[in-house]
């Protein structure tokens, strides 16, 4: 009995220590990526390729999901608002929920599962097939040549994707609310403009998406670089990227929201 308890406690302790160790490695890795970012900025073509990989290839999923999320918001928002007779606030509701929360968060989650997992798999596969070692032996630093461009590609793509998501969502809300159901077009836009503040809402939303972009890209490149160099290790790292990034996005979203809109 006592044995079981001590065994249990030891297991918890070991996991915690392991988690903290990994966090430390990840932090050191992050600093290394930043310190070795010179190449990816000087030879911007490397980063351009990764923007294509992380951003352009995520366009379809982001645009389509944004449209549908906005359409649902338009439908649900209208149903709710019409009961209290304030359906002219539909534009505000759709715009604020997208710009402040749904845009960055949902776009971040989609980005993590579409681009983040792909980045992890790509780097992990390069590690498993010794491509990273080969590069290192050719006196080319794989962090500078492979990891940093992917990191920056992700960081630069994410805010643009989140903005596209929000814009498409507002358009979707407009389609359902105004075109389909027939809420007043004038008040949809004018109330939205009157209530959505550039600094308070839009800038904060953009800041959120930048933070999520850094977090997801960091997790993705770290998991890829740190994975066990086997097929199984790569697949496990890919799963971990999606899980960890999603949790990080939701946790960070709470922290950022309370910092931005709390007081």
């Amino acid at each position: 009995m006592l044995d079981a308890v001590s065994c249990f406690l030891r297991a918890i302790g070991a996991r915690l220590i392991n988690a903290i160790l990994r966090l430390g490695f990840a932090a050191r890795f992050f600093c290394m990526v930043l310190a070795l970012s010179g190449t990816s900025l000087k030879r911007f073509r490397l980063t351009l390729r990764e923007i294509h990989f992380a951003g352009v290839l995520s366009l379809v999923i982001i645009v389509v999901s944004g449209l549908f999320v906005g359409m649902v918001l338009g439908l649900q928002g209208y149903e709710t608002l019409v009961r209290s007779g304030s359906e002219e606030a539909l534009g505000v509701l759709v715009a604020l929920s997208l710009v402040r929360e749904l845009g960055p968060v949902v776009a971040g989650l989609l980005f993590a599962s579409r681009a983040g997992s792909a980045i992890t798999a790509e780097i992990g596969l390069m590690k498993a097939t010794e491509q990273l070692d080969a590069m290192d032996m050719m006196a080319v630093n794989p962090i500078a040549r492979v990891v940093a461009p992917r990191f920056w590609g992700g960081v630069l793509s994410m805010p643009l994707l989140a903005a596209l998501f929000s814009a498409m969502g507002i358009f979707g809300g407009y389609l359902v609310g105004v075109v389909l159901i027939g809420a007043d077009e004038g008040s949809f836009w004018s109330q939205m403009q009157a209530s959505v503040d550039f600094q308070e809402d839009i800038l904060n939303g953009v800041i959120k998406s930048v933070v999520f972009g850094v977090a997801v890209s960091w997790i993705a490149v770290f998991e890829g670089y740190d994975c066990e160099p086997t097929a199984e290790g790569v697949s496990r790292a890919t799963t971990r990227t999606v899980v960890t990034s999603s949790l990080a996005i939701l946790g960070l979203d709470f922290v950022l929201t309370s910092l931005m809109f709390g007081s």
Binding site: L160, F198, G205
Partner: peptide, 23 residues
């Protein structure tokens, strides 16, 4: 494609700040 992507993203940002926001 990267050019199209960046232009679209910037347009979305402009749309958000001009048409949706009060900038």
């Amino acid at each position: 494609w990267v050019g199209i992507f960046v232009v679209l993203g910037v347009l979305a940002l402009l749309f958000l700040s001009m048409r949706v926001g009060n900038l």
